[in-house]
Nucleic acid binder design. Structure first.
Lengths: 105, 105
DNA sequence: AATATTCATCGTATATTTACGATGAACGAT
DNA sequence: ATCGTTCATCGTAAATATACGATGAATATT
């Protein structure tokens, strides 16, 4: 595209779209579900549950981390990932708000 | 990418990711908000409220329609767009479910 | 019928995403 | 110190998304 126009929207809309983008791949949906179900999880365990190479999973984790939906902590040679409840709640609230209106056609 | 692996996930995860993808651009967030606030809206009116060309807005509308979040009805030479409440509710429920879990790190 | 309006689609350029193998950094164990 | 394990990052190829002007189809108006 010639030039992205994303910056010309409100901060709220840009942020919400960014969160949605982080959720826009089934692998990342799966990862988020795994983390909400297990509280925390090593990368290796996540890789085992996905049909993707380790490098690819790492990229997906990076994307979820970028928008703050998950956190990663170093635990020896491993990394412990978990959901960030504060940001998850914030995203949920924003989506709820948008979805709460009712219209008719 | 050599080959998309999206098909190797569950239908639920693929669908939810697809809905998120439809929401992954500030223009489409804005459009959805406009439609939930106005019940229905002609394309021209939406174009006036966005910093994008008509062709681009049309593409964004198509994407929202593709996943069923909005509907478009012909009204003379114009098209009346509105949100699809059934699918919006379905998406809200699926996201709520995913966001409802609590973990700790 | 000719014209204007409204919007989708086509064609196209550029940017971004997705995927993987290879490599490297950090740590624990021997 | 060397080695194995764990994971991020680099490099790269192919797919997809974003943006717009131009064109076309459908309708309403004159």
């Amino acid at each position: 595209m010639a030039l992205s126009k994303k910056e010309e929207f409100t901060q709220e809309d840009i942020w919400l779209a960014d969160v949605a983008k982080a959720l826009s791949h089934p692998a990342r949906i799966r990862i988020l579900k795994i983390l909400t179900e297990m509280d925390y999880c090593m990368v290796g365990s996540i890789v085992d549950q996905l049909p993707l190479a380790q490098a690819t999973v790492s990229q997906h984790l990076k994307e979820l981390k970028r928008v703050g939906l998950i956190d990663g902590e170093i635990d020896g040679p491993k990394i412990c990932y978990c959901v960030n409840n504060k940001n998850l709640a914030k995203a949920k609230a924003a989506l709820d708000k948008m979805f709460s209106k009712i219209g008719c056609c």
